[in-house]
Design a protein around this nucleic acid. Structure first.
Lengths: 194, 194
DNA sequence: GTGTAAATTATCAAATATGACAATAAACGT
DNA sequence: ACGTTTATTGTCATATTTGATAATTTACAC
């Protein structure tokens, strides 16, 4: 009936570009101008599709959360049918296959800082962390079902911490050694269960 | 000979206020206006004492690095003469006595993001991390001098990761449980040495 | 080709951020 | 009281950022 809509593609383009900006400059440093030049689209277009700056941020948060959840449940589903020690396999996946890419990780860090002045987002991220923690606990439970739940949860928090940390430090560059050490530490932590 | 200088005090005030701004809004979001209102000083005064925005940021980085180093070497020096397991005591200190305060931690996170577009700062922070990692390794070495160095370094990376992570997530609020679990995980990790 | 809905471009005003520097006020020694 | 140095305030121009909306162009159906 009329010109075909490219809303879906544009939305995607814009959000991807915005992710890059947020990753590089933080939420408050990701100006619409930078977004425009990053995406190659005019600022007016960004506004047309995404609304004002605040709506854009909300869209980014939702995108990040759903993407991350999809990504993690993908990991958990992949592990599900595996035989052998799923927990160790999980660590392999997390630390070796740069599971979250660098921009995703940087976005997470930027959003966490942003949470300091936006409590609604802080709540979203807190449950996001808890969900991942629970997911890890479930995986551990499968491999070590005789261990007390408290111990499994402790170790889940530890593995998650080691993993999050090394990923967020990745931007400093030259983190190969530290990543390897972090991985071995996570492994060692899990092996305290068997 | 003339009006007494308050440069030292003002500089301190300004940097403290700037820390708060950076912690809340990130480096790029910490505008001179916000700094002015946060510190109660006029923007002209900030410029008078600290120069332009870039010099201010450099001053903040230096302040953060020296403060953090002082703080950590203070910890290590405190542990030095102790009898008993210094490593476990160290974990106690790190996780219980909110060792770095929340703004310091948030500043660290903000600077790490900032590193993504400022490689000189990235280098500074990378050696900063390495120094802390090495410090932890030394403490571990004292308690477990028979263990191979590689294992000690691995565990140092793990403990550091767990600690950094929980501190940077503190801003999300309501992290008591997660902190406790993180601490127990760090403890458990160290106990794999004995 | 004409209508139509969507994409794209073009502008405008307002708010905010920064840099630079002039002008004034205050505290001290003499 | 006076000169000197520093603190403090005031002001201006400029650049950046954002919000809002009008004007134009494009692609499709008929």
């Amino acid at each position: 009936m009329a010109r075909p809509s490219v809303k879906a593609e544009r939305t995607e383009e814009i959000l991807i570009a915005f992710e890059h900006c947020v990753a590089l400059y933080g939420v408050e440093g990701a100006t619409l101008e930078r977004l425009a030049s990053q995406s190659g689209l005019q600022r007016s277009l960004v506004r047309h599709y995404m609304g004002n700056r605040n709506e854009l941020i909300i869209a980014l948060v939702n995108r990040f959360l759903t993407q991350s959840r999809v990504s993690f449940s993908g990991l958990f589903n992949y592990l599900e049918p595996l035989e052998g020690d799923q927990a160790l396999k999980m660590v392999e996946m997390l630390f070796d296959t740069n599971y979250m890419n660098t921009t995703q990780t940087a976005v997470a860090s930027a959003l966490i800082i942003y949470s300091g002045s936006h409590f609604d987002i802080a709540n979203l991220l807190r449950t996001w962390v808890q969900d991942i923690e629970n997911g890890i606990t479930v995986v551990l439970k499968k491999s070590y079902e005789n261990e007390p739940n408290d111990d499994l949860q402790d170790i889940a928090a530890g593995v998650l911490g080691i993993y999050f940390n090394v990923d967020s430090l990745e931007v400093l560059g030259d983190m190969g050694e530290f990543r390897a050490r972090s991985k071995r530490s996570a492994m060692r932590l899990i092996k305290t269960l068997s």
